[in-house]
Design a binder for these strands. Structure first.
Lengths: 182, 182, 182, 182
DNA sequence: CATGAATGAGTCTTCATTCAT
DNA sequence: TATGAATGAAGACTCATTCAT
């Protein structure tokens, strides 16, 4: 059965998204992606030249926007923090599936450092904010993680279509931050 | 020869711990566990019938304590929350390596649900607390994640030997909780 | 549309020649032949039913001339030898590319035996010449190889456009042959 | 069926030798080596860590001796030529199969340059000799090829156990060299 | 008790060839 | 007549698991 290239491409992307989200890059299997897209492996490789290329096709748009987010950061710590948190919410809304894929399992990929980087940027910004308020900066480490994983958990649950929960959660994490740290 | 056997078992456990923590369940290799325990694969399989069984032997003690923790929970939400958070700190201190193994890479294992369970218990308790204070309970979902991953991040960094940072972080997360939620 | 077909066929031949010379039969790729002939694989297969068939189309003319060379050989050993050596030079000049393709990479092809055959004819002729002069005939075996590979090496280097080096080399190989053998 | 490691290793080597000699490195198949050694691929990889490693196990000893041959060359052209030709004969006698494997198909291997090098050394030496006798040095190129392929042909034929034919052939190639070149 | 050789199914990837359109 | 999507078998290599010794 002969089908349109674009339709097939969509089938691949769809099944790859599932597989990568479920197993991460390394344990995802091209075979199983192909077969759940009703296709032979050989044909899969007509569309994407290798596993990383296919992964990139899924993660790509998010990747670009993360980079542009990082390149436009304000200097001042507090506005940088707001800028980042708003940016995260935006990215998560527009690239739900990609975000989860990236943060779920990009180990073994050139994209891994993007995820790590984002983490690092948030952490450093938090540190700067804390320092400015004469508070222990070390707590920035777990707090950055907490924020990212908290947001991811919301994302996973699929229920927060409005984005209200994410707003509330971020508010919860940030409100009166200076007074909650030793 | 019971003595000898026990010594061998310890060697296996020790090297398996390292391997599982480093690579997670799926990417850990029985061959490399055996060889770094100065032992052949065949012999490894005399002690543990397969990879998951070995994984269980490592996660096991933590698993038991998690279960006992769960079976002694106080009824009242607020004391249950404190009970849990204290319990977590205790478990992380006593089973650092196992904890990281469990939460870092139990995908593909029957133990994954243990991690998920713990998550669920914390979430439900948070929900109960929030309900009692007439606050939106949904936020419990990301907050539970945030707590667990924040603690894990501290654990990973190896720097918090005293446990102070964990205390500060939990304080940060819990202080005035009722007033930070819509 | 016979004209068009012929033009296409030429494009195929041209790009196949390059590919086969470069990689030999086994490592040559139909895909790459098609694409460097600005054409799809499917269409390639309309002109040549498989890889070996295409290979034959290239080797073909040389193949025919080799056969005609072989069928017109003089009886008398010494003139046969001259006839062959002259023929080789002629063939190499007129079918440089095909010759290198045939002797460079026909392994896995039914044409390999053509190359072997030519070798055999030269060897047998040399043997007859040696016998006639009461010399050890066995040396014909390495000498036939030496001649053919020596000529191929000249051909490969692309520098001998005049053919002088080939002449000198053959002279070197043949001069006073009877006195150089035990 | 459980067998001694050494016996198995021999079976592998034997079947790899055949395969590599027949198809060269690139087209030789690990699968077919394994199966003609009555073995699974997995087991083959217990003995040799990859295809090149296995190839090296076959070619290795010859490789070493070639290197030692090259490092002890006399300065003076004519004695260097004799040294090389004697060396070749020696190596061919002691490493018949390896020699044919190396010169038959080492493309794609780190060993290829060894073969090419040897060729180059012989060619350069011939050139020096010719220059010293005021003869056209270009002919060294085909003559070096002729010598090597001639010797290989003798080797392939398996008939020259005494080495007499190789001696006669080299004599044939070298005798009165200065007077046979323009 | 312990060894480590062997298996078999899995991994990603390539390629000649076919066939619906 | 031509397209290029699809197939299937093969390539090198890995690894959990079993079993003869």
């Amino acid at each position: 059965m002969q089908v349109l290239k674009e339709e097939v491409r969509q089938r691949i992307i769809k099944s790859a998204r599932r597989e990568f989200k479920k197993h991460g890059f390394e344990k995802a299997s091209m075979r199983s992606i192909a077969s759940s897209a009703n296709m032979t492996v050989g044909n899969l490789y007509r569309y994407y030249k290798n596993k990383e290329d296919l992964y990139g096709a899924i993660i790509g748009s998010l990747f670009d926007e993360i980079n542009s987010l990082k390149s436009n950061m304000p200097e001042e710590p507090e506005s940088r923090l707001n800028y980042l948190l708003d940016g995260f919410k935006e990215l998560q809304k527009d690239h739900r599936s990609e975000w989860l894929t990236l943060f779920g399992g990009s180990t073994g990929t050139k994209f891994q450092k993007v995820a790590d980087d984002l983490h690092g940027v948030l952490r450093d910004t938090l540190m700067d904010v804390l320092k400015k308020n004469d508070r222990r900066p070390e707590i920035a480490v777990p707090v950055a993680s907490a924020i990212i994983y908290g947001l991811n958990t919301i994302l996973k649950s699929e229920k927060d279509k409005s984005g209200d929960l994410a707003d509330d959660f971020l508010n919860y994490m940030m409100v009166d931050i200076a007074n909650r740290v030793a």
